[in-house]
Structures are given as structure tokens and as C-alpha cells.
């Protein structure tokens, strides 16, 4: 089957006074219909730059220097970069909806929730108010909110969790096939986070859309993702199923991220931060960009940037020439990495 989204050799630069920032470099991956993919990495790893390019909403200073973003629905395959404006408008929201990181502030504060729905619907050519109203009610019901109360409310009258639910409902307005969520639960309390995660799980099952979410929070990925992509310094360093990434990571950076997060259940294990900081994306080091922070780096690592190569489990690739050493350390057991690595 043709993937719903296919990203091929995508590179994105930002123009700055110091020179181009190589924010995304040679990124390729596919998302199948109904699949949930989590993109993880530190701030500055390029994950948000990548995601906004999927709806062609990159800031003016950004330039796609190379590659393609192909979207396929049941009729045709289109290249997002070359879509004419009217088709782009159609694609946004009715094919692919994005909920941004600062989502809780993305409402218009002076109009009520009903008008937010009506505005969005009209902007996409829905004219029948009664129909829009019925659809808004149906969607708010779907996200477990009381439509009569919520539609009349203004954004400031809603709690963070309620706003996030309304935004999810709003993103579903035109029945998109692909939803992109940037840090969907970051500003929310634990019990609210839990309810949003459960809601996303239910909606995905019921409506069958594909989901991309971008997060530095590994626990949401552990909850919802089918597959995971680890990004570092603008490029994919590892691609794996959710269980392979959590229990059998093969890139030292994925291992570092996993060890950086303490857990509430199970043994604490050898929790540790990643030393140093990400490289300057203007003057990238030659060779593997993770070398300065990598506990396993050898001289050969600095010679040339490694390719994404298949490792010991199927459909699993890592951009590391030392992946076998990582495999020896981490093994294959379904146990959290922090528990398997002895304190260095």
C-alpha cells in the first residue's frame, strides 16, 4: 500500500546572519495509513521544523534545499511543496491537521467556541451553519465534552485540558487523514495528560487516522506510538518499532535519551543525563554529529557521517557504526534500558 505521507531526502535550512542553519538534513520516512509515529529528540533537533514543513507552514527564513514531501489520499499523490495555493488550503485541515505546541493559546480570545468552529469551517468552504453546528456537537461529544456548555464558552472559561480537547475536536472538523501533534500534553497536569492520551487512543481506533506526534516526552511515545524516530542535530539517527526503540535501541543517543528519564514504576536503574550539548547547526562537525557526547565514540566515528544501516532486529535502522557494541550492552530483553546498563 502507498504510504499516506512519504518524506524523501528532505533538507531544510534557515537563513541567518551567521550563515545557513542546517535544521533538517536528509530525512526520509513513510507513514502508513492508521499508523502512529512519534518523533523524539531534544530541543533543537529539528523535529518541529520537520513537522511544520508537512503543512508548508515553515517560517519565511526556512528553505527546503532538497527532497520531497508526498501525500497520498484515495485519489492521488501530491507533492506538498508544489501544491497550488487553493489546493494547499484544501490539503491543510481537510487532509492534514496540526495542533501546535502553544495550542492552548491558539484560540481567538474574543470569540466563543462555537464561533471558533464556525470560522474554521467557513474558511474551508462549509457554509451551512446548521450542519457546522451539528458537526461541532458531534465532535465535542466525541472528545467527552458537554457541547451545549462548551460551544457557548469563551476560551478563558475553559481549563487547559478542556482547551486541548476542544482543539483536538477542532482538528477533526474536516475528517483529516493525518494529524500532527506537537507536544500534545506538555503543559497539562498528570490526570489531564492521562485523559488526553486515552482520548487520542480511542479516537485513533474509532476514526483510523494516521498520527504523527513530536515530543521530548518519551512516556507519551511509549503510550501511543507504533513506530519511533529519534532525531539528533537535524537528522534521523534511529528508526524502530516502539518496543525495539525502548528495549533494544541501537544508537547511543537513543540510549542516552532513554536513560535521561526517571520512571515512577519499576526499578530506577542507572539514570543519567547526556553530557554536553547538541552541536552548532551552522558549523556541523564532520563525521557523526554525536561524537562529542558519545560514550562509545572511536576515531573512525569522526571521519564521515555514518549511514542509516539495518541492525539486528527487522525494520530497525541506526546511524551508528558502533551499533553492535550498543547491542552487546543493551541486549534484547524487554526491560528498560536504564535497568540493563550498569552505572558507568
Amino acid at each position: 500500500m502507498t504510504p499516506i505521507l512519504s518524506v524523501r531526502d528532505l533538507s531544510i535550512d534557515y537563513r541567518t546572519r551567521r550563515g545557513p542553519v542546517h535544521a533538517v538534513r536528509d530525512v526520509s520516512f513513510d507513514i502508513e495509513k492508521g499508523e502512529t509515529v512519534a518523533i523524539i529528540g531534544e530541543s533543537g533537533s529539528g523535529k518541529t521544523t520537520l513537522a511544520v514543513s508537512f503543512i508548508r507552514l515553515s517560517p519565511r527564513s526556512a528553505r527546503i534545499t532538497k527532497g520531497q514531501i508526498l501525500y497520498t489520499n484515495d485519489r492521488e499523490t501530491v507533492d506538498i511543496q508544489t501544491l497550488p495555493d487553493d489546493e494547499l488550503r484544501q490539503y491543510r485541515w481537510s487532509e492534514c491537521a496540526m495542533v501546535f505546541q502553544a495550542a492552548l493559546n491558539s484560540f481567538n480570545p474574543v470569540i466563543n467556541i462555537w464561533e471558533q468552529f464556525a470560522d474554521t469551517a467557513r474558511a474551508h468552504g462549509m457554509k451551512d451553519s446548521a450542519k457546522i453546528h451539528a458537526r461541532a456537537q458531534e465532535l465535542l461529544d466525541l472528545v467527552h465534552l458537554d457541547p451545549d456548555r462548551i460551544l457557548k464558552a469563551y476560551p478563558h472559561e475553559l481549563s487547559g485540558g478542556m482547551k486541548q480537547r476542544v482543539l483536538i475536536a477542532l482538528s477533526l472538523l474536516l475528517e483529516p487523514q493525518l494529524i500532527i501533534l506537537d507536544e500534545p500534553t506538555t503543559a497539562l497536569d498528570i490526570l489531564t495528560q492521562r485523559s488526553i492520551i486515552d482520548l487520542l487512543g480511542q479516537l485513533r481506533k474509532k476514526l483510523g487516522f494516521s498520527l504523527i506526534f513530536i515530543s521530548h516526552d518519551l512516556s507519551i511515545a511509549a503510550e501511543l506510538a507504533d513506530r519511533m524516530i529519534t532525531m539528533y542535530a537535524g537528522t534521523i539517527v534511529e528508526r524502530a518499532s516502539v518496543t525495539d526503540l525502548f528495549y533494544r535501541p541501537r544508537h547511543p543517543y537513543s540510549v542516552g535519551l532513554l536513560r535521561a528519564v526517571p520512571r515512577v514504576s519499576g526499578a530506577m536503574g542507572s539514570v543519567a543525563s547526556i553530557p554536553g550539548s547538541p552541536p552548532d547547526l551552522i558549523r556541523l562537525p564532520s563525521g557523526c554529529t554525536y561524537v562529542p557526547r558519545c560514550p562509545l565514540a572511536i576515531a573512525a566515528c569522526a571521519e564521515r557521517e555514518p549511514d542509516l544501516v539495518p541492525v539486528d532486529t527487522p525494520n530497525h535502522e541506526a546511524r551508528c557504526i558502533r551499533w553492535k557494541t550498543v547491542a552487546e550492552q543493551v541486549g534484547t530483553a524487554e526491560v528498560a534500558v536504564a535497568e540493563k546498563i550498569a552505572t558507568a
Binding site: 495528560q193 518519551l218 511509549a222
Partner: peptide
């Protein structure tokens, strides 16, 4: 309710 960075546990 806490989501955990461990798919099996969470």
C-alpha cells in the same frame, strides 16, 4: 495515571 517511558509498563 502517570504515563511511563516504558511501553510494556505504561
Amino acid at each position: 495515571a502517570i504515563p511511563e517511558a516504558d511501553p510494556r509498563i505504561t
